[in-house]
């Protein structure tokens, strides 16, 4: 049996908005560690990995490990019915064919429950190794979203290059080219406004902007984003979910023919 209660229900609403356009159906895995998900997009180019740790919930009970297959579009429709200040409780059973979402208003004067049908989804976990990355960039998530949005009006792909000069985002399209360089900047009023670049060696990789733009839907979850790059690995775009865990997007690069 799974029973979890999340006082900050808006977090779950934001999580769904961050993944529903990338992945249609996915298995949520329930364990003593937390509520997690790993799923590939339908093109098998990107992978999303979500962890909401059990300690982040006001109440968390999971008697045994099991998975619940959900259509994320339908789950999003249900969670949109929760108010931003609502407390969300999720209840489900191993082997059950439905999951219940309960929404409580902060003053407890409105309580709603929604039951959603589950689905059988054939999915296998990919093994994601711990890796050393050539470069790790941490920057404000709003800045990264702005860059991806701006560049996608000019081209379809972005070249992300990290050198000791900074991190450069470049694109080219029919109308011209664009280059945006962000330098390390730690002299800011608030730590979340800093751009921090840790570089072991220069790296330059090309990615489809369509996916990057999709990842930036997680920006409301975190003020900062961490982009980890290595020439032999997919890029990892990570948004920390305060006190609870993370949402990580892995994107395979495009390579020269």
């Amino acid at each position: 049996m799974l029973e979890l209660r999340l006082v900050q229900g808006s977090l779950l609403k934001k999580v769904l908005e961050s993944i529903k356009d990338l992945v249609n159906d996915a298995n949520f895995d329930c364990s003593a560690t937390g509520f997690s998900l790993q799923a590939m997009d339908s093109s098998h180019v990107a992978l999303v990995s979500l962890l909401l740790r059990s300690e982040g919930f006001e109440h968390y009970r999971c008697d045994k490990n099991f998975s619940m297959g959900m259509n994320l579009g339908n789950m999003s429709k249900m969670l949109k019915c929760a108010g931003n200040d609502d407390i969300i409780t999720i209840k489900g059973d191993d082997g059950g064919d439905t999951i219940t979402f309960m929404f409580e208003s902060p003053s407890q004067d409105k309580i709603a429950d929604f039951e959603m049908k589950l689905m059988d989804i054939d999915s296998e976990h990919l093994g994601i190794p711990e890796a050393e990355y050539h470069a790790i960039v941490r920057m404000p998530s709003a800045e990264f979203a702005r860059i991806c949005k701006d560049l996608s009006s000019i081209g379809d792909t972005v070249i992300i290059s990290v050198t000791k000069e900074g991190v450069k985002f470049s694109t080219k399209g029919d109308i011209g080219t664009a280059n945006i360089v962000c330098r390390q900047n730690t002299t800011v009023d608030k730590p979340e406004e800093a751009t921090i670049i840790e570089m072991q060696e220069p790296v330059s990789l090309t990615f489809a902007l369509r996916y990057m733009n999709s990842f930036t839907k997680a920006s409301p979850l975190s003020n900062t984003v961490t982009i980890s790059l290595s020439s032999e690995l997919p890029v990892v775009v990570e948004y920390k979910i305060a006190e609870m865990g993370y949402i990580r997007y892995y994107l395979a690069p495009k390579i020269e023919d």
Partner: peptide, 14 residues
């Protein structure tokens, strides 16, 4: 031109 690599190229099933 560039070719999109699949994520499975990097990560194997557990």
């Amino acid at each position: 031109s560039c070719t999109q690599v699949f994520i499975l190229f990097y990560f194997l099933y557990l």
